[in-house]
Design a protein around this nucleic acid. Sequence first.
DNA 1: TATCGCTTTATTGTATCCGATTATGAGGTT
DNA 2: AACCTCATAATCGGATACAATAAAGCGATA
Lengths: 236, 236
Amino acid sequence: MNRTPTTGASVVLMPSATAHSSNRVVDAIRELIISGELAPGSRLNQEDLAARFSVSRLPVRDALSRLESDGLVILKPSSGAWVAKLDLAECLEIYMIRERLEPLALRHSVERCTEGDIVLFGDLVEAMAAGTDTETFLRLDRQFHLASYRPCGMAHLQTLIERYWNSTQHYRRAFTNFLGRERNWIIHAEHRLIVDAIRRRDGDGAAHLLFEHIRRTRCELAEHPSIFDATAKGKI
Amino acid sequence: MNRTPTTGASVVLMPSATAHSSNRVVDAIRELIISGELAPGSRLNQEDLAARFSVSRLPVRDALSRLESDGLVILKPSSGAWVAKLDLAECLEIYMIRERLEPLALRHSVERCTEGDIVLFGDLVEAMAAGTDTETFLRLDRQFHLASYRPCGMAHLQTLIERYWNSTQHYRRAFTNFLGRERNWIIHAEHRLIVDAIRRRDGDGAAHLLFEHIRRTRCELAEHPSIFDATAKGKI
DNA sequence: TATCGCTTTATTGTATCCGATTATGAGGTT
DNA sequence: AACCTCATAATCGGATACAATAAAGCGATA
């Protein structure tokens, strides 16, 4: 059992000495957004956030502008900050980007991962197939994929991929809840095929399967634009 | 003649009402880095920058942390900020990422660009072939490629691509100077082939040519690790 | 009654100040 | 002579306070 923290805000970058409150605030807000506690479209009030984390507004402002670069927050100058909201087109765009990036990472991972890594991948996939609730599903899905990219040795690429997983997390949750569990067998089958290709050290095979995994999800997503209608009113 | 500003810090995002000094400082520092005035590894002193732009240290701090997310600046907590430096491996990694992203953008652009756009692409390529000095070469190269992605209708992808052009700009300059002009005919040939494919509305062809364009550059870059040895001392 | 304009209020952006951490240099010791 | 230690100085991170901007609510007028 690997001990990646909750949703793994900083999986690729070592947690580092996050002594400075700015970093703590960044991670905390990111966590609130990824966990779904702050829904897309929610207003982010600097003073409220400052009070919540017992700091002044300054680290909060810093955090917000960093999270904007991460694509999780939208800043309107002199006006305020909101949790970033994606429409269907943007989400499809991000999936198309992921289709290009993640197979690249996986192919390099396959060339470098240890046998122990592969055991971990298999364990995560099977734990996912055995899981029941949505949050477990999402957490293990994320853990499996991000873990499968970790040996790739491309730090920039990993950061980038993690960013896109973060900014689409909310919509993956909504989509998972929407579909229910009856079509999950497809995902598990795809995951098992990917792990099998990794076991055979077939990097290209794994990459192609992963490409199709993401592409199929994108196509299914495109069939359900209603996911993006919900103008969820956020609460801080 | 298009009026893209100097190096085009904000080509994709509209310049917007950048009334706030933070944004101005971000753009200004980015410009200093991209233009080469601040070399990778240079120390960025908050007070000096504040004095240079006639603002307090606060907008500068804000700018630095944003530029860190852009990959242009490295922040060491409680220690300072430096212009990000790439080693050969990182640069090759970014080129591999670009190989995946830019063909995607181009393929979508080909489906959406106007005849007028295509004329612009051709003009830029020919202006580049007629150019003499390094800075013109770099500017037109950048303008051509970024312009060719602009009609793609994928804002996130464009921002991303522009980021990577920014963070590798210094090394493209060094590489261009290193190679001299005798091998530029390859680049012009590739560019003309790409424009021709666009004219024929052959999106896949253009994408493949672009992929090879970037890949060949990456392979050549890998042959010249000395580019990354120069520990340029920066001045503010 | 609806719309336009103004005033008020809340929230953001900026400057100055203070504490904390790190880098630097001198001095002593092995 | 090289290395380690301690003190000093420079610089960064954060808090408080103030100014500027935008949103909202109220009132007046067509």
